[in-house]
Design a protein around this nucleic acid. Structure first.
Lengths: 188, 188
DNA sequence: GTCTATATCTGGATAGAC
DNA sequence: GTCTATCCAGATATAGAC
């Protein structure tokens, strides 16, 4: 279980904290979540918690990174349905989308920790999905004239935009709109 | 100049304040803008300013409403190029996009003043653009099988998503991606 | 590594005079 | 309508003991 070697225990504890934070934010939402709140949820004092992450913002970014671990692999699937499924699953945890939206807004400031994270996420996510699109094209599942990079960027930005809106108006069917765009793209 | 009748002067003053706030946020960005900051910019004390809007959040929402006055008409143009031009123009004032993004995040809370504003904006914006699409279809500029409502929602969400991302990574060409989607939609 | 306690700070809201 | 002055709440960050 516990990793061997130096820092093993510290890293493990960090993971535990992130998982607890993930749960707490998912349950109570982003707005209701202060550092003190999180500390209590993980069974630590505020000082103890901040020992691991330095600042609140760093902590929140780490939470987002953790969530991405699962989401990002879906972008390399040989079918956008996998990513659409992720979006659909995310709709079960509005608290995390809320967190994401707030961090995205804060990331406009280049000095904010979320800034580097978001840029990296865009780069990585678009690259992965773009590669998947090229694979599909080779497999004959995508018209030859489609620009994979542009389509990937668009699809990614659209899913972000839909999520922000869905948070405010949950009657929006995100998955349906993504599927529509996809079908339109492949000319079906 | 001054409106006649009761409340005329108050409404006028309100407009002046909003215009000054619009300029200030455009210049200094959202993050650097506190109520005290805005008050100074319009030549009022903090108390004097809050007399007109009650709270900071209400003030910010009023600023967004004011900006929308200009933007929304473009959605009724007989060509999405008009709206794309608005997006392109907005890229000149990142401070206002920053404001929008933060308000969009805050609007997830139903009690926040931005919540009602955003819902209304989505409704109105999508309805307007959807109507434009139907007009285009009648004019033969849009394939018959396109669902106007869904396309409008998609286009709107995409432009929001692109703006959020652009704020973090200004190398993104928002207009180019919107044009690409549009061309793909009409099958060109 | 973790806790307690505290330093500070920022900023928004409010009361009441003019 | 507008100003001055004050209040207050809420958080984070830090210092230093254990």
């Amino acid at each position: 279980m516990a990793k061997r070697g130096p820092y093993g225990k510290g890293i493990e504890r960090r993971e535990q904290i992130l998982e607890a934070a993930l749960r707490t934010i998912a349950e109570r939402g982003f707005l209701a979540t202060s550092v003190a709140e999180l500390a209590e949820a993980v069974g630590l004092s505020q000082g103890g918690l901040l020992h691991y992450f330095g600042t609140k913002e760093e902590l929140f970014v780490a939470v987002l990174r953790k969530r991405d671990e699962a989401d990002m692999v879906a972008l390399r699937a040989p079918d956008p349905a996998a990513y659409i499924a992720v979006i659909r699953r995310n709709a079960q945890v509005p608290g995390l989308i809320e967190l994401f939206t707030h961090m995205q807004a804060a990331a406009a400031d280049p000095r904010h920790p979320a800034h580097a994270y978001m840029k990296e996420r865009y780069r990585r996510g678009t690259a992965a999905f773009s590669q998947s699109l090229r694979d599909m094209r080779e497999a004959g599942a995508l018209p030859a004239h489609i620009d994979a990079d542009a389509a990937a960027t668009t699809f990614f930005a659209l899913s972000d935009g839909l999520q922000s809106r869905w948070l405010i108006d949950p009657s929006l069917d995100m998955a349906a709109h993504l599927e529509l765009v996809w079908r339109n793209l492949i000319g079906a």
